[in-house]
Simulated assay, not measured.
Amino acid sequence: MHARTATRLAGGLYLGIIILGLTAELALRGPIASAADQAAALAGAVPLWRAALAADLLMASFDIALALLLYRLFRRFGPDLALAALVLRLVQMAVIAAHLPLLLSAIGAADPAPLIARHGAGYDLGLWFFGLNALVMALLLRRTGTAWLAWLIAAAGAVYLFGSLTRFAAPELNAAMQPAYLVPVVAELSFAIWLLFGAKALRSAA
């Protein structure tokens, strides 16, 4: 595969992951999970809940393909770092995907709240590894000469790590820092757009 094609495919996959993730977590699942009566809300919106699960599965599949493409594109800038990023991204998605059956079990449950909460904790556990992945990717991006994007991705990694840590160690602080997750959205969207329309340093890397 030509490097230009690989970078654009990686950008398209990354954009797809962002859209699928936000759609599943915020648009489809969010209103149900945040309802005062989750059992009633879920019972009245099972198709939306299942659609969110389908989006999660597509996102996981895209993430595997993206992890392999990013390894191919970045390995000449540091083979060990690129391999570490590959492993961390795959671990992140494996952890998140492993918790999806909890959401399936929530359908029809008398009290789905514990299952939804366990999925949320599993999601944040997966994001711990994604935070580490982001820090490694920041180092690789810096080696390509793209310092502005490296700083953005490093900031996203810091938010993910702090968010995961506080989820388990300081829930009150975690609730207060939720607006900070806008930083990873901006950073990852910038990364996707850079792969789609820029990434000149990578075009000879694949």
Rank of each mutant, 00 (worst) to 15 (best):
59 M>F: 13
134 A>H: 07
25 E>I: 12
28 L>T: 00
124 D>W: 15
118 R>E: 12
15 L>N: 06
50 R>S: 08
52 A>Y: 00
106 A>R: 02
74 F>V: 08
103 L>C: 07
191 F>Q: 05
149 L>K: 04
49 W>M: 04
27 A>Q: 13
44 G>K: 09
74 F>W: 01
100 L>W: 10
74 F>D: 02
157 G>L: 07
78 G>E: 05
108 G>Y: 12
111 D>I: 03
121 A>H: 13
29 R>H: 06
9 L>R: 09
25 E>W: 05
203 R>E: 14
171 P>Y: 00
178 Q>V: 15
120 G>Y: 00
153 I>M: 05
182 L>G: 12
113 A>T: 15
26 L>V: 15
179 P>W: 06
26 L>S: 11
15 L>H: 08
197 F>E: 03
23 T>D: 05
148 W>T: 11
168 F>V: 11
110 A>W: 05
153 I>W: 01
126 G>Q: 02
177 M>A: 08
46 V>Q: 06
163 G>Q: 02
84 A>I: 13
191 F>W: 09
2 H>I: 13
98 A>N: 01
19 I>H: 04
94 A>Q: 03
42 L>I: 07
204 S>Q: 13
12 G>S: 05
48 L>Q: 14
57 L>F: 07
7 T>P: 02
133 N>I: 10
124 D>I: 09
167 R>M: 12
118 R>Q: 15
132 L>G: 13
67 A>I: 03
76 R>A: 13
154 A>T: 08
83 L>G: 05
150 A>L: 06
65 A>G: 06
143 R>E: 07
182 L>F: 09
117 A>M: 09
77 F>E: 01
67 A>H: 02
199 A>K: 01
76 R>G: 12
2 H>D: 15
72 R>C: 14
201 A>W: 01
132 L>C: 14
55 A>R: 01
19 I>Y: 04
157 G>Y: 00
51 A>W: 06
74 F>N: 02
196 L>K: 03
159 V>L: 07
75 R>Q: 15
122 G>K: 03
57 L>M: 13
177 M>V: 09
177 M>D: 04
14 Y>D: 14
104 L>Y: 10
112 P>E: 04
203 R>S: 06
127 L>R: 02
32 I>A: 10
95 V>T: 13
155 A>D: 10
69 L>I: 10
111 D>Y: 02
200 K>S: 15
77 F>R: 14
17 I>Q: 11
9 L>T: 14
39 A>Y: 00
101 P>N: 03
65 A>R: 07
159 V>W: 04
26 L>I: 15
33 A>W: 07
